[in-house]
Design a protein around this nucleic acid. Structure first.
Length: 549
RNA sequence: GGUCUGUUGGUGAAGUGGUUAACACAUAACCCUCUCAAGGUUACAUUCAUGGGUUCAAAUCCCAUACAGAUCACCA
């Protein structure tokens, strides 16, 4: 029996050739320099911040080169698949407005693009065609090693401090004759297909990574599995070869943990004579755990999950701002010069990416998010808040919908000025800072009055002020002058400097007065501009509130 | 143990042979001020993991050591 016959025995239904697929998926017709990138997650759970980093870079690279950004579902490990994961990936891409040009969603039966299927489990025939070629050429072979055998090989290798893996003399089945292999297959033995590596571990080759520059590796000499026995789907390495070749990917963005598989991918592409895509290995996002630094983990760190940012209500673009500063630290500088530009206009440079992992910094995110929110118009903040609360705080949502204009006015306090307030980093913080403006929420309040003053005194000050002085139509200057007038009338000092010189001459000062009024109407001793708050609340509401103190 | 990569302040980092070692976040103090937030001013690495070498000159080039991370599955 020849290897060709063996290949026919293993893949009897495969009739197409590699050339057929080359014709079916021709080189993309794109302008010079256009990059084809892909986001290729596995549907094994909720999206990780590291995946998001790579998706963002993919998106930026494709957009700014007028290329293609596509989505590929890497579902070759059916055992780890989690329901809803694909839907969530779609949701995240839409939420952050990074929608791929090509994708395929099985659940809603939607496909876009002509390089599909974009779901690996639906590409079995394609992979088998490539594997069949390898087997028939004698460049791959069925391997009948059992899990137990492999475990014991690994153990003995570890014990003898040898390199771990199935290579050289450990590759027990690489020299089986086609007849012997066929016999075992016919008898129903389980097998995996391994690459018959031709590499030499003592030879080195140079590899250029766009992020890390030139690196040197020993050649791969391990007979890596390319097809699994369980579901006959390819392993990651082989699917990467076939898919990124056929889908004509030009740039592969992936985590740094993949660097160590470069020798494998290098050999695979060489075996078929395919041109390798360019690689950008992105830094790992790390986390300080006590004294230890480790890779950020979905299981241990809530901020590793993309759900965290939505739940907290970080605006999508604020998260992207932070991610971009991780990608290229000169992004911030660029942003300062181009406050209005879209993030895809930033000239992203893989070289400028740090090669050691970055520590995740929530404080920095908060700061960027505060800046971002402070630059928005009140209506825009309102829209974000409404969308967020629709999902996470329905009661508050109905409230702000009912008082839409009023809410926008509240959100506009000290906003339209050169240096707007930066009160909140997330949408979820807003309610805690403006609740007292709503009658519905102004119940069972705790007044934060200064206990230096008696209740009667406070009541006297507040009622005097509101009955004799306060008028909604006053402008800010008149308003403040009137505050000074009440102060003087009741024996308080209207001027802080004068007060500080002789505090014993007065009952208190202007700050005490405004504080009593502030607490009387809001219950809080700290609020934004009192003048605007009083104006917004209006006389009726104020009257009602001061009766309650 | 093998392979690969790193190491600049509390954090992210710029800097690739001659700089006062940028910038941002955080922190602290002061100023402004009716509170808060914001803003303004200032402080915060005599030193770039350590040791050696090359050089008139090193964070930058070379070597060694230490430390840290990634990876070594029919997981991606």
């Amino acid at each position: 029996m020849t290897t060709k016959e063996l290949a026919n025995l293993i893949f009897p239904d495969i009739t197409k050739s590699i050339e057929d697929y080359e014709r079916e998926y021709p080189e993309r017709n794109l302008p010079e320099g256009a990059k084809v990138t892909r986001f290729a997650p596995s549907p094994t759970g909720f999206m990780h911040i590291g995946n998001f980093l790579s998706a963002t870079i993919d998106y930026v690279l494709a957009k700014q080169s007028k290329g293609i950004f596509y989505l590929r579902n890497e579902d070759t490990d059916s055992s780890r698949e989690i329901e809803g994961a694909v839907e969530y990936i779609r949701h995240v891409l839409e939420h952050y407005d990074m929608v791929p040009e090509e994708y395929e969603y099985r659940d809603i039966n939607e496909i876009k693009g002509i390089y599909g299927p974009y779901i690996q489990s639906e590409r079995k025939t394609i992979y088998h065609t490539f594997i069949k070629y390898l087997v028939s050429e004698g460049k791959a072979y069925p391997c009948f090693l059992t899990q137990e055998e492999m475990d014991s090989i690994r153990e003995s290798q570890a014990k003898d401090k040898r390199r771990i893996g199935i290579y050289g003399r450990y590759a027990k089945y690489r020299n089986l004759t086609p007849d012997e292999a066929a016999e075992r297959i016919k008898s129903g033995e389980k097998y995996t297909i391994r690459l018959k590596s031709t590499g030499d571990f003592n030879k080195k080759f140079k590899f250029n990574d766009l992020a890390n520059g030139e690196m040197e590796f020993p050649e791969n000499d391990i007979d890596i599995p390319i097809m699994k026995s369980s579901n006959l789907l390819p392993t990651y390495h082989f699917a990467h070869l076939v898919d990124d070749h056929l889908m004509r990917t030009t740039h592969v963005v992936r985590g740094q943990e993949w660097i160590s598989s470069i020798p494998v991918h290098y050999e695979l592409f060489k075996t078929f004579g395919f041109k390798m895509p360019k690689y950008i290995h992105i830094p790992l996002i790390q986390k300080k755990d006590g004294e230890k630094i480790r890779k950020i983990s979905k299981r241990l760190d809530q901020e590793a999950r993309m759900t965290y940012y939505e739940e907290k209500g970080y605006p999508a673009l604020a998260v992207i701002e932070y991610i971009m500063t991780i990608a290229n630290s000169n992004y911030e500088e660029w942003r300062e010069k181009n406050p209005e530009a879209h993030f895809t206009d930033f000239a992203f440079s893989p070289k400028k990416m740090s090669s050691s992992g970055a520590l995740f910094d929530l404080e920095k995110l908060d700061n960027l998010s505060k800046n971002y929110l402070s630059k928005l118009k009140a209506v825009e903040v309102y829209d974000l808040l409404r969308n967020w609360s629709e999902k996470y705080d329905q009661d508050f949502c109905t409230l702000i919908k009912e008082y839409k204009d009023y809410t926008i006015d509240i959100l506009n306090i000290e906003r339209e000025q050169k240096k707007p307030r930066k009160d909140y980093a997330t949408l979820s913080e807003i309610k805690g800072q403006i609740w007292y403006m709503y009658e519905e929420l102004f119940t069972n309040v705790k007044y934060e009055f200064d206990d230096r003053f008696l209740k009667e005194e406070i009541k006297k000050v507040v009622t005097t002020y509101f009955t004799k002085y306060f008028k909604t139509e006053d402008d800010k200057e008149t308003w403040f002058n009137k505050m000074k007038e009440v102060a003087t009338e009741l024996g308080y000092c209207a001027d802080m400097k004068a007060y500080k010189e002789n505090p014993e001459n007065y009952k208190g000062n202007i700050a005490d007065i405004s504080n009593m009024i502030r607490v009387a109407v809001t219950s809080k001793s700290q609020t934004p501009d009192l003048y605007i708050i009083l104006k917004l609340l209006g006389t009726d509401r104020i009257k009602e509130r001061i009766e309650r103190i």
